Amino acid sequence: MHRVPLPLPNDGLHAVNVYLLENLAEDDGIVMIDGGWTVPEARKALEEAMAGLGRDLGDISHILVTHIHRDHYTNAVELRRLLGSQVYMGAGEQPGLEMLDRLRNYVPDSSLRTLSEAGAGELVDRIRAMDHGAYDPDVWEAPDRWLRAETLRFGGRELHVVPTPGHTQGHVVYLDEQRGLLFSGDHVLPHITPSIGFELAERGGRPLADYLDSLRLMTRYADTRLLPAHGPVADSSHTRVAELLTHHDNRLTQTLTALGEHTRDAHTVALRLAWTRREVPFGDLNAFNQMLAINETAAHLEVLVLRGRVAVAFADGVNQYTRVR
């Protein structure tokens, strides 16, 4: 099993990890976890990694994608076109792919709708005016197989497909119980918590509540080594899951404190919170990260509503939140 960081263009995360698994497929092909972003520098890095194994790109027989975001999916589709590799992805991503084909752009409509309902109409205009990258329909084809909760078998090895909605509706992780490995995609990351419900399609379910449920689901399996899509490998998936659950518990408390005793929208609450591990003020974030921050604040307020701590009323197109006494 080999971890290969592939570079990302203009992205704060810098790289996405793909994993090359040898001696799995019956045809001696390599099974690859996640595909990367289809940019020339990523292709070059992958070719060099394969050469270091005495292999070439043609040996990649299967690509198992964790979710639909560009840095995970687009290069998988491109490699399939070049090599004939089989691409698998979670069935929950099908609505997003269909929506993307209709929109023909990368403007995150569902996130912008959340912004509008959060009272951040001016930010919606700024996000729409941004350059989100040229839409390339060739890299948004359907996978060869839509995955549900099931077990994939490659030779004598098994990989369990575990749906983990939250980051996206159709996010899945791949669990190798025999060797104690969890290929966690963006579900469990070693140093950051992923954005919640970042969808181009309409959001399904309640993203943060779903994410917390998906985190707790990981503890029902034996502890494993954590193989994330971003950042270094970690020894214990359970340890990191516990840290993420604690983080969100703390964030829920901070969100309730920021709401205070007044009725406020999610935008106003987000302004009263600090962001990232460096405790950056909301005003110091760029427009894209302000969008993520408001979307995350709305998600935390939604969980507080579900828990009976906050009441919500929809008025003049905006959700207004009030603490329940």
Rank of each mutant, 00 (worst) to 15 (best):
residue 249 D to C: 02
residue 144 D to K: 04
residue 150 E to S: 11
residue 219 T to M: 15
residue 227 L to Q: 10
residue 250 N to P: 13
residue 247 H to P: 13
residue 204 G to E: 12
residue 191 H to D: 08
residue 167 H to F: 15
residue 244 L to K: 06
residue 176 D to R: 12
residue 179 R to I: 02
residue 204 G to P: 00
residue 220 R to E: 14
residue 234 A to E: 12
residue 225 R to I: 01
residue 245 L to F: 11
residue 206 R to A: 14
residue 249 D to T: 13
residue 165 P to Q: 06
residue 216 R to E: 13
residue 185 G to M: 05
residue 204 G to I: 06
residue 244 L to W: 11
residue 204 G to M: 08
residue 246 T to P: 15
residue 130 M to L: 14
residue 190 P to Y: 12
residue 258 A to G: 03
residue 256 L to T: 06
residue 152 L to T: 12
residue 254 Q to A: 15
residue 228 P to T: 03
residue 230 H to G: 01
residue 183 F to T: 05
residue 187 H to V: 15
residue 208 L to N: 11
residue 240 R to S: 05
residue 229 A to C: 09
residue 147 L to W: 01
residue 201 A to Q: 02
residue 166 G to A: 10
residue 218 M to P: 08
residue 230 H to K: 01
residue 223 D to Y: 01
residue 145 R to I: 07
residue 197 G to N: 04
residue 237 S to H: 08
residue 151 T to P: 03
residue 230 H to V: 15
residue 235 D to S: 14
residue 154 F to E: 05
residue 209 A to C: 05
residue 233 V to H: 01
residue 143 P to K: 09
residue 174 Y to S: 04
residue 237 S to V: 10
residue 161 V to P: 14
residue 246 T to K: 15
residue 163 P to G: 08
residue 134 A to P: 06
residue 233 V to I: 09
residue 245 L to I: 08
residue 189 L to I: 06
residue 237 S to N: 03
residue 256 L to M: 10
residue 221 Y to N: 09
residue 217 L to Y: 00
residue 187 H to T: 15
residue 248 H to W: 12
residue 148 R to K: 12
residue 145 R to G: 03
residue 248 H to M: 06
residue 200 L to S: 08
residue 172 V to E: 02
residue 205 G to F: 15
residue 164 T to E: 09
residue 146 W to Q: 06
residue 211 Y to F: 09
residue 173 V to M: 14
residue 252 L to C: 08
